[in-house]
Computed example of a mutant assay.
Amino acid sequence: MHLEGATPVDVLWCDKDDPMHGMFKLQEILGRDRTADHLRITVDITTFTKQYLLVLLKWIEHHLPNAAVRTVYTPGQYGETRAQQARFTWGVKDIVTVPMYGMPPSPESSDVLVIFLGYERERTYRLWRTLEPDLTIAVIGVPPAFPGANYTSEILNARILNSKTDDIAIRSCSAVDPADAARLLCDVAAEHEGCNLVVAPLGTKMQTLGLYLFSRRREGRAAQIMYALPLRYDEKYYTVGHTSYVYEFDLAGAPK
């Protein structure tokens, strides 16, 4: 994260599975050097975990409410065969509620789970089986981040998409346009008003950014966000980047 007007470069070593650990360290830095010049913030979200991304954006919203935020994202590009064989993570350590995004569910209401699908088949399937929602809305990234990515995602998540049940609906939204993901979530929330809405961001980072924008629009009526923590990451399958995407928004203005 870059604060325009700040001269030093600080490297923060943080617990990858505990985003609040990183936020406490960030607060120490800003407490030492926080001026009006720091209201333009650039965040390269390429290598963030989605949980860290969501917590960081909420933290900025609370502590720098007048900031103009620019996010930069460069998705990796994989060949179809390689992506189907790759294991970007191994196992599931835990399934947790993302800090600052916990909506207490009503025991009398139905549970609607929205899963943004990507390449994390094991984490996605384990989360789905653990939560056992009354209705699952599986979201595929179309248009994809690069040609063919949506087909690979469908193959990797076939156990969910091909389940012979009536409680799974398939929807789509852009893999690279946060506003499209936010619109989809607003539509789902309106269609299932009164239900316990749960969202699992296991698609792209830009879709996760759309989830944050949705939470800003709905404020206290948004959703509970659940995340599957992996046991370990498999760095050998990390790859070179594809086209970079930039998205800007102003925290002081009304959410779009």
Rank of each mutant, 00 (worst) to 15 (best):
I140Q: 09
L213P: 01
I41P: 12
M1T: 06
Y245K: 12
L211T: 09
H2P: 04
D234V: 08
D166Y: 01
A179K: 03
V240C: 04
V176H: 11
A223R: 06
P201E: 09
R217P: 00
S244I: 00
L211D: 02
R40W: 03
Q224N: 08
A222N: 11
D180G: 06
Y151R: 13
M226T: 03
G220K: 01
D166K: 12
V199H: 12
W59P: 03
G91N: 07
L161W: 04
P65G: 10
K50H: 14
T130C: 11
V11E: 11
E61M: 05
L113F: 02
L56K: 02
Y237V: 14
I115M: 14
G194K: 01
A223H: 05
G203D: 04
G118Y: 10
V92M: 06
L202K: 02
V240Q: 09
Y73F: 14
L39D: 15
T204A: 04
A254Q: 10
I155D: 12
T35N: 13
L202G: 03
L127K: 12
K205F: 03
T239F: 06
R129G: 03
M103V: 05
V246E: 12
T152Q: 03
G203F: 10
T71Q: 07
T208W: 10
I160K: 07
L127W: 11
A175G: 14
T7Y: 14
M226D: 06
R123I: 00
W59I: 03
I60A: 09
Y233H: 13
D250L: 07
L202I: 00
L57H: 13
R217D: 00
L113W: 04
Q27E: 09
A228D: 02
A223T: 09
D180L: 02
A175K: 07
A179D: 07
W128Q: 05
T89R: 10
A68S: 09
F214R: 02
I160A: 04
T89N: 14
T71L: 15
R87N: 15
T124A: 15
R232D: 04
K256L: 08
V246C: 03
D111H: 11
K164L: 08
R123V: 00
W128Y: 14
M20C: 03
E61A: 11
T239E: 13
D250V: 01
